[in-house]
Amino acid sequence: MTLHVLSLQELKIDNEEDVVLVRRAVRLLAEARSFDSFTTAALTTAVTELSRNVWVHAQRGRALIEEVTDGVRTGIRAEFHDEGPGIPDLDWALTDGHSTAASLGLGLSGTRRLVDEFHIESQPGQGTLVRITKWKRF
């Protein structure tokens, strides 16, 4: 199915307050589109963890927040880009229980379980891209 972007926000992540702003933008969009409270909470938790990862590990990056549709469903897709140190071992980073720094303790594997779609690309020394999508439940 073809995915169509209905709205787009780009937010910088250059300091800890930006993590809060990204979280708030996603929560407000989910609430405005009448996502149920469970879906909204799961999405905002995932977005907070990923935004915090950008800030802690790369010190700067950006988040793209999109309202998307595939013609049947509506969802929110969030994409996080940084040019930090990258992740040398993605398999290890995606292992349950793996979390670094002062995060929520979810790690990437916990974040992956909170969303419907999860994609990650990372190269040591070149940064990381993480894309998540959460679909509105009927």
Rank of each mutant, 00 (worst) to 15 (best):
T44M: 14
T95G: 07
L11I: 13
R62Y: 05
G105Q: 13
T74I: 14
Q123M: 09
I76F: 01
I65Q: 08
R23K: 13
L90Y: 07
L8P: 01
A78H: 02
R73S: 07
V47T: 15
R33A: 12
G61C: 11
N53R: 08
A93I: 02
T45G: 00
V47M: 03
A102I: 05
A101W: 13
L94C: 08
H119E: 15
L114M: 09
L114I: 04
G86Y: 03
T69C: 08
V72Y: 10
A25Y: 01
V47L: 08
L94I: 07
A63G: 12
D82T: 00
R60S: 15
D70H: 08
H119M: 07
A46C: 10
I13A: 00
V5E: 15
T48L: 11
G107D: 09
R27W: 06
R27A: 15
A78L: 04
S37P: 02
S103P: 04
D91T: 14
T39C: 03
S109R: 10
R27S: 15
L28E: 15
G110N: 13
I76W: 01
T39Y: 02
Q59V: 10
I76S: 01
S51I: 01
T40K: 05
Q59N: 04
H57P: 05
D89L: 10
E16G: 02
E66Q: 15
V72M: 06
V22P: 01
K12E: 13
A46R: 06
T95N: 10
S99L: 02
L28P: 00
